[in-house]
Design a protein around this nucleic acid. Structure first.
Length: 625
DNA sequence: GAGCACTGC
C-alpha cells in the first residue's frame, strides 16, 4: 500500500477507474500523521467533484462536513481552523498561492485528475515544484506532492518531478469489447445512426447506449431523427427514449440521464464530451464513439481562438470506452477503423498549449515567478504565445520591461486580484476615472459568464418583441445592463425570466460574480460611484480598456479590426446587427462561417486615441491623426 | 443575414 512516510517528496499515483483512490489517499495520509504539520490539500478540476468528495470523506470519518474534512471552491468556503483534509478546485489553490507562493499552510498537495491537464493543473505543477524547492532552501517543513493520474504517460510526469517513484492502483474496471469499422466513414453522423439502430434491434432493451457527438445542434438534430425512426419501427421492437445531453441544457433536463427507462424501453443518450468526465451515467452497456470532438485551438499570430470539430486523442477514446464498463462488462463501437485509431495522438494537447495566455502570465507574475519565459512548465507553451500574452499585458499597462526583465506594474498587481481576464479587470479599475464603477461591475460580470440570453429559433418574433424594451442603440453592453437592472427590479423573478427569454441560472451567477468583484474592489479601496443615466461615461470607460478589440466601418460597408486589420462582421445576435456604426468595440471574435464580433459597443474613435495615442497613431486610418 | 466543446478563479 501507500507509505506516506517515505523520504521522497514526490509520488506519482497511476490508477484505473474504480480504485477509490481519491477518497482513500487523503485518509491514509491523515492517519499516517501527515496532517499534523499542516493541511492536506486535494485539488480537483471541477467544483462538484471537490464538494461531493469532501462530503464522502467527511462521512467516512464520521465527522461533520466543514470540521476535520472541508472544501473551498469559488463563492463557498466550508472549512474551519480544525480542518486537516481540504478539497479544493485547482483554480482555488492557485488563487491561494498568489497570497502565499510557499503554500505554508499545507503539508501535502495532492493534485488529482492530473491527466486532464487543465490550465490550472499545469500551472500548479510548476507552483508546487517551486514551493517545494524554496521550502527546502529555507529549511522549512517539506511540502509533499502527490500527483494522481488515470492515463499512462508515466515518463512525462515522473521525469518532470525529478524521477518520482510511481505507484499503480488497480481498479475494478470491467472488460470492454472494442469494435472498429471495417472501412473509413465519411459521415460519422450517418454511421452513428446505423450503429444505434443496429444495437437497438439486437440487444435487450435494458441495455443503455451512450453516443459521443460534438455539439448541441448536431445532438438535437440526431435526437429528432432517432425519435422519428424509432416510431416507424415494427410494433414488436422496443420503444426508445432519446435523451440529449450537453452543458448549456437546463439542469433539470440534464438530470433526466439518471432516470431509469420504463421496462421494455431503451435509453439512448446523445452527449457531448460532458459525459467523458463531468457527468458519469450509471448502467451504460454500449458506447458509440464518433471519434470527433469540438475543441478550442489558438493561433498566437492572429490572436484568434477557433472552436473546431477535430479528431479525439487515443486517451480520449479510452476514456469514452471506459464509460461502458462501470458496473458490468461493456461494448464500445468506434466509428472509425483500427488504422485510424492508431494514427490518433496519444494524449490530448494540454489546454495550456491551446489558449490565450494573458491570464496565466499575469498570474505567474503575481506569484513572483522570476522569469516567465523560462518557467518550468511540464509542457511548454510556444514562445510566440507567451510573447503575445506579454505584449497584450504591456498594452494594458499591467507589465513593464526593465533590464530585459518583465515586472508587474501597480495596476497589474491590482488586476491580478480579480478572477477575470486581464482586460476585464482593467475595465473595473479604470471605471473609477469615469465615475461608473457600479455599472461597469454589472457589465463585466455579465461578460464573464455564459450568455444570460437565450433565443429559441422557433420563437424568434416573441424573443425580439421581449427584447425591444431593453434594447439600446448604443450596443449590447448597455442593453445587457438594462436587462440586469430589470432583473433586479423584479428580484430575479422566474416568471419574468421566462417571459423575457433570460436564463435565470446564468443571471443568478452574474449576481454572485458581481458580489465577489465588488468585495475585491472594496479591499482595493475603490469608491463605488454610479453614472446613473449617463451611458456616455460607461462607453468611454469601455473604450479605454478594450481598445485592443475594436473595428471600423469601411467604405464598402464591411468592418476591419483595428489591431490586425482582419475582415470581420457584426454577429446577428447583436442589437447593432442592422446598424452600421462607424466604430465599435467588441467583447469577442467567433470564427464560424465568417469572423463575427460578438457583444458590441458603439464608441467614438477619439476616445480610442485618448486611451492609447501611440498605438492608434499607427493603427487608425481615416480619423484624425 | 447566424449559431454556442468543456471547465474555472
Amino acid at each position: 500500500g501507500l507509505s506516506p512516510n517515505t523520504e521522497s517528496l514526490h509520488l506519482i499515483v497511476f490508477y484505473t477507474t474504480g480504485s477509490g483512490k481519491t477518497t482513500q489517499v487523503p485518509q491514509y495520509l491523515y492517519e499516517a500523521g501527515v496532517g499534523r504539520q499542516g493541511i492536506i490539500a486535494v485539488t480537483q478540476p471541477r467544483r462538484v467533484a471537490a464538494i461531493s468528495l469532501a462530503a464522502r470523506v467527511s462521512e467516512e470519518k464520521t465527522t461533520k462536513l466543514g470540521s476535520l474534512v472541508g472544501y473551498t471552491v469559488r463563492f463557498e468556503d466550508i472549512t474551519c481552523n480544525e480542518t486537516k483534509i481540504k478539497f479544493l478546485t485547482d483554480g482555488m489553490l492557485l488563487r491561494e498561492a498568489i497570497g502565499d507562493p510557499l503554500l505554508r499552510r499545507y503539508s501535502v498537495a495532492v493534485l488529482d485528475e492530473a491527466h486532464e491537464r487543465t490550465v490550472h493543473t499545469d500551472v500548479l505543477f510548476g507552483v508546487v515544484k517551486a514551493a517545494q524547492r524554496k521550502r527546502r532552501e529555507l529549511n522549512k517543513a517539506p511540502l509533499k506532492v502527490i500527483i494522481m493520474s488515470a492515463t499512462m504517460d508515466v515518463d512525462l510526469f515522473s521525469e518532470y518531478f525529478n524521477r518520482a517513484p510511481v505507484l499503480y492502483l488497480e481498479g475494478r474496471q470491467h472488460p470492454i469489447q472494442i469494435f472498429y469499422t471495417k472501412s473509413s466513414q465519411s459521415d460519422y453522423l450517418h454511421a452513428a445512426l446505423v450503429s444505434i439502430f443496429q444495437i437497438h434491434q439486437e440487444a435487450p432493451a435494458s441495455h443503455d447506449i451512450l453516443v459521443f457527438l460534438t455539439g448541441q445542434e448536431e445532438i438535437e438534430a440526431m435526437s429528432r431523427t432517432c425519435r422519428e425512426i424509432s416510431k416507424q419501427l415494427p410494433s414488436d421492437s422496443a420503444a426508445m427514449w432519446v435523451i440529449p445531453l450537453y452543458a448549456s441544457l437546463p439542469h433539470l433536463q440534464q438530470l433526466r440521464v439518471f432516470q431509469a427507462a420504463h421496462k421494455g424501453c431503451r435509453k439512448v443518450i446523445l452527449s457531448t464530451n460532458i459525459a467523458e468526465t463531468s457527468i458519469t451515467i450509471p448502467g451504460i452497456k454500449y458506447v458509440v464513439d464518433s471519434g470527433m470532438v469540438k475543441a478550442k485551438r489558438y493561433n498566437p499570430e492572429s490572436g484568434l481562438e477557433v472552436l473546431a470539430v477535430q479528431r479525439i486523442s487515443k486517451a480520449q477514446a479510452w476514456q469514452r470506452a471506459g464509460r461502458a464498463g462501470r458496473e458490468d462488462r461493456g461494448l464500445c463501437y468506434r466509428l472509425y477503423t483500427e488504422e485510424e485509431f492508431e494514427k490518433l495522438l496519444d494524449m490530448t494537447v494540454p489546454e495550456i498549449q491551446r489558449c490565450n495566455l494573458a491570464s496565466v502570465v499575469l498570474q505567474l507574475l503575481a506569484l513572483r515567478v522570476p522569469n516567465i519565459l523560462t518557467f518550468d512548465f511540464m509542457s511548454k507553451p510556444s514562445p510566440g504565445a507567451v510573447r503575445a500574452a506579454v505584449e497584450q499585458l504591456h498594452l494594458l499597462g499591467a507589465v513593464e520591461r526593465q533590464d530585459n526583465q518583465i515586472h508587474l506594474t501597480l495596476l497589474g498587481k491590482k488586476m491580478s486580484a480579480f478572477p477575470l481576464e486581464p482586460r476585464l479587470s482593467k475595465t473595473i479599475l479604470l471605471s473609477q476615472d469615469f465615475h461608473c464603477t457600479e455599472e461597469i461591475l454589472t457589465i463585466v460580470s455579465l461578460l464573464s459568464v455564459d450568455s444570460v440570453l437565450y433565443s429559441p429559433p422557433a420563437k424568434r418574433e416573441e424573443v425580439q418583441a421581449a427584447r425591444t424594451k431593453y434594447t439600446s442603440s448604443e450596443g449590447d453592453h448597455i442593453t445587457l445592463l438594462n436587462i440586469y437592472r430589470a432583473f433586479k427590479n423584479v428580484s430575479g423573478h422566474k416568471e419574468w425570466c421566462r417571459e423575457n427569454f433570460v436564463n435565470s441560472r446564468n443571471m443568478n451567477m452574474v449576481s454572485e460574480v458581481r458580489h465577489q468583484l465588488r468585495n475585491i474592489c472594496g479591499k482595493l479601496g475603490m469608491r463605488f460611484e454610479s453614472s446613473r443615466s449617463d451611458t456616455g461615461n460607461i462607453r468611454r470607460c469601455l473604450a479605454h480598456s478594450m481598445f485592443l478589440t475594436t473595428a471600423e466601418l469601411q467604405l464598402d460597408g464591411t468592418y476591419v479590426t483595428l489591431d490586425s486589420r482582419q475582415l470581420v462582421a457584426i454577429h446577428p445576435s447583436s442589437v447593432l446587427f442592422h446598424c452600421k456604426p462607424a466604430c465599435v468595440l467588441y467583447n469577442e471574435l467567433v470564427h464560424t462561417s465568417r469572423r463575427y464580433m460578438r457583444d458590441l459597443c458603439l464608441v467614438d474613435p477619439e476616445w480610442l486615441y485618448e486611451a492609447a495615442p501611440e498605438y492608434f497613431r499607427r493603427k487608425l486610418k481615416g480619423g484624425k491623426g
